[in-house]
Write a protein that binds this DNA or RNA. Structure first.
Lengths: 333, 333
DNA sequence: CTGTTAGCGCATTCAC
DNA sequence: GTGAATGCGCTAACAG
C-alpha cells in the first residue's frame, strides 16, 4: 500500500494524496473526499520510514530506562506516552538494565532511528558517555529522576525529600534510624537520597545513622536479616526505594519482627502498588506520571523550537508522602 | 553523518562503505580498516529509516501489550528483548490499556513502521479486529498469554493450571473455594481460568464455586471486603491474577482475617515480586520470560522463512506452582 | 575487489 | 488546486 497506489486508484497525483494527509486545506473538498475514501478502502497508511527519511523528523521520542521491572519506571512512561501522543509523538522505550554500556548503545540506536528527542533515566549523569554524545548530536533530551546542574532534568529533590522523611520519623519518636540502599556508587539518586538522610539526621541533632548497602536486590532479604539481627537494631528503617522497602518488611517479618510495631519501614518512590500491600507501604511519593508528562512538555517545546534544552529548563516537581501502615511510633521498650 | 560523508572522507564509494558494514568479507582488509576508522571517527551510524525503506525490512519486532504496570507484562518483554537481540532484532513495545481500539491502532502504527513481526497480548483473539488486519497484511505474529485454535500462540494452559490449583487446595482440605476475577467478558484468559476453576471443582466432586467479578481494579479491595463479609465465607480464594491476589490479602487483613490462618489466597501469574511479599504469595507460575523467548524463536523462524506463522506452531510452556505462605490449610472452624 | 546507479515511499518545491 | 520532478540515505544489482 503505497501512496502511489492510492493516487492511481483515485485518479490524482501522489502530491495530492500527500496533501490530503498533511495539508488538507490545500485540497479541494471533493478531491479530498475522494482520496480519503480510496485510502480508507485500500487501508493506506503512510510509510513511517519514508516520511522520516524525507522530512528528517520521525515524530518519535526515545525513552531510555533502567528497567521496566521496577514499577517506578513503568509508571513514568504512562505519562510520557500520553503526553507525547497529545503532541503527535510516539515513544520507543529502551531498557538498559543499569548498564552503562547499554545506555550508550540505547542512545546510539535511538539516534539511528532519528528520534526527535529523548527522555532518559541514567545511572549517573556526571559519568555518562551517552549524554556527551547526545549533546554533541544536538538531539533535545531531558533526564528524569536524575538531578544534575549541567543537564536539563525533571525530578523531585531527593535530598530534601529524604531529609523531610527523617524529620517525620523523628517527630514520631524515632531516634535510631538506619538507611538501606542499593550500591551508592551505582546511582546519583541513591547518593542524593543518602545525603538527605545524613542531613535530616543532622538537622534533628542525631548522630550519623547506619547505612546498609545492598548491592544485589536478590540478596536483599538475606542481608537485611543479618543486619536486623545485629546489635542496636534501629527502630526505623528508611529504604532508598520501594522494592527495597518491600523486601525489608519481609526480612523483618521472617525474623519475627512485626511492622510497624517492632520496626518502622519507609520507602521511596510511591509505586502504585504500595497502598495495596499489607501493611500498606509508607513512602515518599514521586509523581511518576507527572514527571513523565513534564519531561515531554519540555521536550515538545524544544523540538518545536528546533534546539536542545538547556539545564536551566530543569523542573523540580513536588514530592509528597503516603504514611501507610508500615511506619509507626517506635516500640515502647 | 551520512554514508556519503564517510565515503568521501575515506576516499571510497558509498557502496564500499555499505559493504564494510553489511558484507565485510567483500572488502579488502586495508580498505575495510580505513573505512572503519573513518566511520568511528565521524561517529557514523547507518540511518535506520533509509535502511528500512531500501531493504523493506526493519529488523524490528513490534510488541503489543495491555500495560506495563502489571509486572507480568513487564517481565515477558525481558525475554523478548534478549532473544530478539540474539537474532539481530530490536523491539518496539506498545501498550493498549486493554482497549480494543488501541490494539488496532497499535498494530496499524507498528505496521506503518514496517516491523518484521509482532508479539501481541490481546484481550480476546476471537474478537480482535487487529488480528484480522495483521493476518491480511501477512505480517508474522504470535500471541502471548492468549490461547486460540486459529492463531499461533505461546501460553500455559490456563484452564489446566487452574484446575490443578483447585486440586491442590482441595488436597489441603479446602471445600469452600471461591474465585476472584476481573471482568470475564474482557479477556479470554480470565474465561479460560474460570473454566479451569469450574472443572477443577467438578473433578473434586465439589459443587460450583462462587465467582466474584471485580470489573475495576481500583475498587477491588472494597468489593472483596464486602464479599468476605457475606455469608458462607470461603476458606480459600483463587485469584485470577497476582495483582488481584495482593489486593485480596489486603482486603482480608483489613477486616481482621489473617492469611493464611483464616483465609487462603492463591494467585496466578508468578510475578517476581510474589516471593518478597508478606506473606509471600502462593501462585500459579507462568514462565514469563520464557514465554517471551519462545515467542521470538517462533517469530524468528517465520521471518527468516518469509512467511507467517500458522496456528499449529503454537507452544504450551509448562506452568508450575509457588506455594508461598498465603495458602494454608482451612481453619479448624 | 570496487564504483556507478536505480529506486525504496514520501514531502516538497516549482510550474501550471 | 493540482501535477511533475527532486532527493532524503541506503542497499543491491551490475559493470568493470
Amino acid at each position: 500500500m503505497s501512496i502511489e497506489a492510492v493516487a492511481r486508484e483515485a485518479g490524482v497525483s501522489v502530491a495530492t494524496v500527500s496533501r490530503v494527509f498533511n495539508a488538507p486545506d490545500l485540497v479541494r473538498p471533493p478531491t479530498r473526499e475522494k482520496v480519503e475514501k480510496v485510502a480508507l478502502r485500500l487501508g493506506y497508511r503512510a510509510n513511517a520510514s519514508a516520511q522520516t527519511l524525507r522530512t528528517q523528523r520521525s515524530k518519535v521520542i526515545g525513552v531510555v530506562l533502567p528497567t521496566l521491572l521496577n514499577p517506578v519506571f513503568a509508571e513514568c512512561p504512562e505519562g510520557i506516552a500520553a503526553t507525547a501522543a497529545e503532541h503527535g509523538y510516539s515513544i520507543i522505550p529502551v531498557t538498559t538494565s543499569y548498564r552503562l554500556a547499554d545506555e550508550e548503545a540505547a542512545v546510539a540506536r535511538l539516534a539511528a532511528r532519528s528520534v526527535d528527542g529523548m527522555v532518559l533515566v541514567v545511572a549517573n549523569p556526571a559519568a555518562s558517555p551517552a549524554l556527551k554524545r547526545l549533546r554533541a548530536a544536538k538531539v533535545p533530551y531531558v533526564l528524569a529522576y536524575n538531578r544534575h546542574a549541567k543537564h536539563p532534568c525533571v525530578s523531585v529533590d531527593h535530598e530534601a525529600a529524604v531529609a523531610d522523611v527523617v524529620h517525620r520519623l523523628v517527630a514520631r519518636g524515632h531516634r535510631r534510624i538506619a538507611m538501606v540502599s542499593g550500591q551508592l556508587s551505582a546511582s546519583d539518586r541513591a547518593q542524593q537520597r543518602h545525603r538527605g538522610f545524613v542531613r535530616g539526621l543532622g538537622e534533628c541533632g542525631l548522630s550519623a545513622g547506619t547505612l546498609l548497602e545492598v548491592p544485589f536486590m536478590e540478596h536483599a532479604v538475606q542481608h537485611l536479616t543479618e543486619f536486623l539481627r545485629g546489635p542496636a537494631r534501629p527502630t526505623a528503617l528508611f529504604c532508598s526505594n520501594d522494592l527495597l522497602a518491600i523486601r525489608t518488611v519481609r526480612a523483618a517479618w521472617q525474623m519475627g519482627l512485626r511492622v510497624p510495631a517492632d520496626l518502622s519501614v519507609v520507602g521511596f518512590d510511591g509505586i502504585e502498588l504500595g497502598p495495596d500491600l499489607t501493611p500498606s507501604l509508607g513512602t515518599v511519593v514521586q509523581p511518576n506520571r507527572e514527571i513523565g508528562i513534564q519531561c515531554v512538555r519540555l521536550l515538545a517545546g524544544a523540538m518545536a523550537a528546533g534546539r536542545p534544552l538547556v539545564p536551566k529548563a530543569s523542573l523540580t516537581p513536588d514530592h509528597s508522602f503516603r504514611d501507610g501502615e508500615s511506619p509507626g511510633p517506635p516500640p515502647a521498650s
